[in-house]
Write a protein that binds this DNA or RNA. Structure first.
Lengths: 223, 223
DNA sequence: GGTTGTATGATGGTATACCATAAGACAAGA
DNA sequence: TCTTGTCTTATGGTATACCATCATACAACC
């Protein structure tokens, strides 16, 4: 019996479980660098800091471990994952493939709706002030591209990889000494997609990423 | 003080933790299809079947969830992840990119040692009888390629993706009605790498994968 | 003095107990 | 008969208790 559901009465806010909350907190704590690379994650200490039991902390650590943000040394416990340039380079290479394909796919199928969303995301990016806001806006921008291309799984993978190089990304976003400013490169991506030019979109994304990777390398090897 | 370590006395067998054992068991149970797609994974039942406590089972489920093999429905608990063709197609597309790049990279840098290992892996593949053995040998074959190319992280990703389409892979491996038998395609890959021909290696891998994807699509939409 | 045995504390691994809630069954009333 | 309230049970969420092991320090013995 169809009884016309009233969307306004919907309960969207599922009662978030403690685990999800703690997962979010710890993830941002690691990504933001509050827990530095290599730092030990002592379970009982985290319990005290977070006010939850070890069950929750342990399950969250397992998730973060699977995400590559945490690694567990045998008989030593979990530590924040370390990142060397060899790994970072691989991650940038993979992003080059996945983001290039997404941009090309997006450009190939972009209709008016997609272009609207992309323009909005780009405007938000340009309006964003402050590191976190830029970070967030950049994520949204790429999400539009991946979703439009129908590459949801690739998007998941890229997000996870981005988590692992988050500190590098923050550094590259803040860097101003790049040959062509990031915003200009982003604008090229937008233009290519608006023109439904798949090859140009891929090229623009790849240029942007190679640029970012070069900066990241200087950062990582310079310290 | 250097005191010449005796490799023979090494203790390799790390005292595997219960969690790792259970993780392995459950992963293969899902991949092999013993837990069918969509089946509920009731924690206490699993505890009985495995003879471990819920702590262990829950942590393992978190890992499998992060791997994409399990999904947790809110207020319903974990179930074996479902797979539709839309997702499978995306996974094959990503594999196309990553495996193509790995094969090209491997061909570009392959020296005598790599070629030896590759030949050995291919021989093992041809000698393998039985579904599981073929599966295992195929994995080893690709591992040689990825490792030689230095694409460790991409290899992790591919392995994880393969877990999600394992049942499809089993079907395609068992299929004989492909235009060109799988072994022949594999031989092309080997030949291209032996000749250090990166473009040909990429092409061979891509052909092989497109073939497998086509078979998988027929399987998945046919049932 | 250096080596080795031992005690102690920190920490992860594991098991279990308890609680909140959702889903299904069933009875009572219209 | 259909609705509605309630009860029960299954199940996941959370906390805690206990155990095994590793690392460190220190003492004892050669």
């Amino acid at each position: 019996m169809e009884q016309g559901l009233h969307p306004d009465l919907r309960i969207d806010q599922m009662p978030q479980t403690l685990r999800e909350i703690v997962l979010g907190r710890m993830r941002t704590a690691i990504i933001s660098g509050r827990f530095p690379s290599g730092a030990r994650l002592v379970e009982r200490t985290l319990c005290d800091q977070l006010g939850v039991s070890r069950s929750v902390v342990r399950e969250v650590i397992r998730i973060l471990e699977a995400e590559g943000l945490v690694e567990s040394l045998p008989n030593r416990g979990p530590v924040v994952a370390r990142l060397d340039w060899g790994q970072a380079r691989q991650i940038y290479d993979i992003r080059l493939l996945l983001e290039g394909a997404a941009a090309a796919g997006c450009a190939a199928v972009a209709d008016a709706g997609v272009k609207d969303r992309l323009a909005a995301a780009f405007a938000a990016l340009e309006a964003a002030g402050g590191e976190d806001a830029v970070f967030e806006a950049t994520t949204r921008f790429y999400e539009v591209i991946f979703r439009a291309a129908g590459h949801d799984i690739a998007w998941e993978i890229v997000q996870r990889l981005n988590g692992r190089i988050s500190r590098l990304r923050a550094l590259t976003l803040a860097t101003v000494d790049r040959a062509v400013p990031g915003r200009v490169r982003m604008a090229r991506i937008v233009a290519a997609i608006m023109a439904n030019n798949a090859a140009a979109a891929r090229q623009a994304v790849e240029d942007h990423l190679r640029d970012a990777a070069a900066i990241a390398q200087r950062m990582l090897e310079g310290e």
